[in-house]
Design a protein around this nucleic acid. Structure first.
Lengths: 336, 336
DNA sequence: CGCTCTGCTGCAATCGTTTGCAGGATGACC
DNA sequence: GGTCATCCTGCAAACGATTGCAGCAGAGCG
């Protein structure tokens, strides 16, 4: 069926070794031989068998990516970055979606580990010990999570929260609520901690933690009423999808955004510019995170001895749009 | 480093063959031997080497998925379906993103083909001849495209357009415009043809083709002014993302939706419920398409001789939301 | 006790490539 | 023309699993 190196060798009148060398290390083969081999290989449509090559070299030319939910635009964008960077380096990408289930991440990782040179875990929900175990078993890079000495790409969550709080305080808000994501989310823990700490630094400002919610629109919908009942005039959400849920619930209840309450999301996923009001959001480098993860991983793979530990910390930037406004806007006439 | 079947065999005091059989065909091994082997294998953390297994069996246990743009929520949802179904069948998924470039689809497919049992091409942009070639080289299933006898999963585009036109005519619209997607998109061609044909069936209704646009928000933004200039009171968009661009541009120009113009999208991606106004859209079975593609592919893989040709045609359902309204709404007082 | 039959297990070949090593041819230089 | 170095090519051994085939042991039966 498929044409093998042996077939090419037979036709070209050389040995299998020469075929192999002509493709992998052309300089080791005499010019005329090489040209002839390459020509017949191309002519016969020869493509080396990846499994056989992997077996002998130990290299697969693949990387693996595990995300909690590919339908979440955040992960779609990170995946895009991984794709682009991997392709430009000649690597193919395995992807696995844990469906937000922390308990299967380990198994997914182990299944993939055998067929890849390295693994990128994006926002893994599993406990840190699981990550430690996996890091011992295969080369891996964490994106959007930090754990001990495991190489990682993270964003400056604290700075993002700082910018959000600063923005809201500048608008006059003094009672702020945080709508959390999953309890298993590391970035949620980071953001919550930063929120409570940075919010507490201002004597005139109160901060409220509304608890954990599913990272879906439904999570934000569920949090909406709590947010209103909390008396907060501004809400920071774990991510943009949850913020959409808030906007949705507020609309249902006739609460105007930003006149009655301001909403800030996190991630700045592409659609956040399109809601109405458009969402003010802490912008994270989504595609770049994916690219950086691949770069780091390939660095580890290519240079096994080098850089035993490495962390990338990427900058964030608040994007102000229509969902945030002055605290006292409600007092003014509603712009019909 | 990694523990091989030979290691397990040595410890368990059996031959490699027995280890292999204990795992793959337990019934061929005596109960006590099998238990001992499985126990030591588990104890040593043995995992068979995928490359070696692939080499001898010819089966990889992987499937490949190629999409034009993973950041487009349509493809994210289809990917989700592929993921879920593949995982439940014990398959891992390779994914490749062509970045909307038809010319690299063939190369991506061929690279993946070597490492998978079958390939799913979702909305491929490549010419039909390229698909014919690929179908000859590897088992593949098309999703969201039909081409000759290549197994495919499609949706009823014509029925979707019929429902959209019916809805808009019921609202009193008599001049309708279609904002197209990429010229390379098969579903765009289908929808455009259906639009022109079905629209033309009504003597009192005029249809306008506004041309091809990029399947991004920017494409819709670019089409917005043409739509207004066309004199149409209602616009059907190639997909929801393009429709978002229309909404965006209309907002910029102060054109009210749906009072001044109605907008219908296609796909009903999750975020379409969240824009304001929420988008009326021809709902496609996104996740189901992915699942169906996997089912079809695995059917082909498992039973090489069976079903030489097979097509799945899935139903669609218009979802009516706030972006469509009566044609004469503009005459009524604007609800402040 | 011996024969046959069944049921396990091991041997060894195989998948398609890579790569260290050896050997042959060629050319250069004395 | 001989010697040596250089360059290229082929041989053969891996890599780690699967699997047809053969052989052996044990049981059953006459």
């Amino acid at each position: 069926m498929a044409v093998s190196a042996r077939d090419v060798a037979r036709v070209a009148g050389v040995s299998v070794s020469t075929v192999s060398r002509a493709l992998s290390r052309p300089d080791d083969v005499a010019a005329h031989t090489r040209d002839r081999v390459l020509a017949t290989a191309r002519g016969m449509g020869y493509r080396p068998n990846a499994a056989a090559r992997t077996l002998i070299t130990g290299r697969t030319g693949n990387i693996g990516l595990i995300v909690p939910d590919i339908e979440n635009p955040f992960f779609a964008s990170v995946t895009k970055g991984v794709q682009l960077q991997a392709r430009s380096a000649g690597y193919a990408v395995f992807i696995a979606d844990s469906d937000e289930d922390p308990s299967i991440e380990r198994e997914l990782a182990r299944n993939l580990a055998k067929q890849v040179d390295g693994l990128i875990l994006c926002s893994p929900r599993a406990p840190g010990e699981v990550l430690d175990d996996l890091a011992r078993e295969c080369t891996l890079v964490l994106v959007n999570r930090r754990r001990g000495d495991i190489p990682s790409v993270t964003v400056d969550n604290r700075e993002g929260v700082r910018q959000a709080i600063g923005h809201l305080r500048a608008l006059g808000h003094r009672r702020l609520a945080y709508v959390g994501g999953p309890a298993t989310s590391w970035s949620n823990r980071e953001r919550l901690a930063a929120f409570l700490e940075l919010g507490g630094e201002h004597e005139d400002t109160e901060v409220v933690d509304l608890g954990f919610f599913q990272p879906y629109v439904s999570g934000g919908v569920a949090a909406g009423d709590l947010a209103l009942a909390s008396g907060a005039t501004a809400v920071l959400a774990y991510n943009d999808v949850v913020a959409f849920g808030l906007l949705e619930r507020f609309r249902q209840r006739g609460v105007r955004v930003p006149d009655d309450v301001s909403v800030v999301g996190t991630d700045d996923i592409p659609v956040s510019a399109l809601t109405s009001p458009a969402l003010t959001s802490v912008g994270l480098p989504l595609v770049s995170s994916g690219r950086a993860g691949v770069d780091m991983l390939l660095g580890l793979v290519g240079d096994p001895a080098a850089v035993p530990v490495h962390h990338h910390h990427l900058a964030v930037q608040l994007v102000v749009r229509g969902s945030t406004g002055p605290r006292d806007a409600a007092a003014r006439p509603h712009p019909g």
